[in-house]
Design a protein around this nucleic acid. Structure first.
Lengths: 212, 212
DNA sequence: ACCTGAACACCGTTCAAGT
DNA sequence: ACCTGAACACCGTTCAAGT
């Protein structure tokens, strides 16, 4: 005796194994793509492989994504959501020490990139256009806001514009180190084991100066 | 009456139009690839298109490059050579002012990236492995040395290791801004017209502190 | 509404054959 | 030595057809 199928509420999807409906193919495709990107790099990502891994035909994704790039954008977006949560977790323990928050944020920013290099590259360097994927950039901005809010806690005398550019500067400093590490240019000059030293050297004085 | 073909000297290749020899196909392929990458982005680069543009069959490149990636590496390498020259030209007028050299270097680093976004991406983010293309990373390192040498001129009391990490830090700071700009994340937050301000804010204090 | 099967154009790579 | 032509496996995308 099977339980009667309840009328599905908005956004609720239960997987039905065995039927021709996959259940939640959209999410399964994103998961498979994420897995491939993380295991084989951004180059080892083909729609056909994703379909094989998800157990569907090569035409199936086109019910859910306009094209390959749209699936990639979904992967990037899920990455930014993860990133945002990761950064929020990072600053939470330092609620009343915004300067320490920034120092730890910098370390964790680079750590995230190094622990998820392929995902990080898809997020930042997949050449996805804002005009096509505005939600993607909105999600990315939410991660940036974690830095922005932390700066705001570092002093009240600043204009919004001033706070903004300070946050962009810190973001860029972290990002530069992260990207060079991920793309192998710090390994080249045997700097990878000195990354935390590099982060300190680059950012500590800058952060210190925020106290005016 | 045709002129007799002279025995070609070592490394000398004259293009002979009409013959089955292209002349200098290797360089022509790099040029065509560069052109496509710059015009259509790193994604609009297919070996087949390069061949069409160079007027040869799709099998022809395999006499000169092991595969598509090897041609891409050659494009990246030519980019790093150009970049090195560009940076050297930048510091030349400020021979006796190393601090001003660094400030101008930072501006020009970002400017190069923004003026050659696709080429810049191929250079830094094409996922080329050092183990496969050691000469590529050696060439990249030569560009980095321009920054390194400029730091050396900023004071003599530092150890080699200290100088090195300072150079990497400055490189990373420039690189972070450049990469965010090239990948559209500064456009997203309407920061693109304030980039020079951002560079100053990020680097000026750091450079100033190099005077001890 | 959601997925399959078959088809098409395109690409990277290989190899025997031509000059 | 250098390039062509033809072939093969693979990929992105489309579409008529199935449930």
């Amino acid at each position: 005796m099977t339980t009667p199928i309840p009328k599905p509420k908005n956004g609720e999807k239960k997987p039905k194994a065995g039927s021709y409906h996959h259940g939640d193919l959209k999410e399964a495709l994103v998961a498979a793509a994420l897995d491939l990107v993380d295991r084989k790099g951004p180059k080892g990502f083909s729609l056909a492989q994703v379909c094989r891994q998800a157990g569907v035909s090569v035409a199936a994704p086109y019910r859910h994504f306009a094209d390959k790039e749209a699936l990639l954008a979904a992967v990037a977006q899920s990455g930014f959501l993860l990133f945002q949560g990761y950064l929020e977790e990072t600053v939470r323990p330092y609620e009343n020490d915004p300067f320490e928050s920034l120092r730890v944020l910098a370390v964790k920013y680079v750590e995230f990139a190094r622990q998820n290099p392929s995902r990080f590259r898809v997020m930042f360097a997949a050449d996805l256009q804002k005009s096509r994927f505005p939600e993607l950039f909105a999600t990315a901005h939410n991660a940036f806001v974690v830095v922005l809010k932390t700066i705001e806690r570092c002093g009240t005398g600043r204009s919004a514009s001033e706070t903004y550019i300070l946050a962009v500067s810190i973001w860029a400093q972290c990002h530069g180190i992260a990207v060079l590490a991920v793309d192998g240019f710090l390994r080249e000059i045997s700097m990878e084991e000195r990354i935390n030293e590099l982060i300190k050297l680059t950012l500590d004085r800058f952060i210190e100066d925020l106290a005016k």
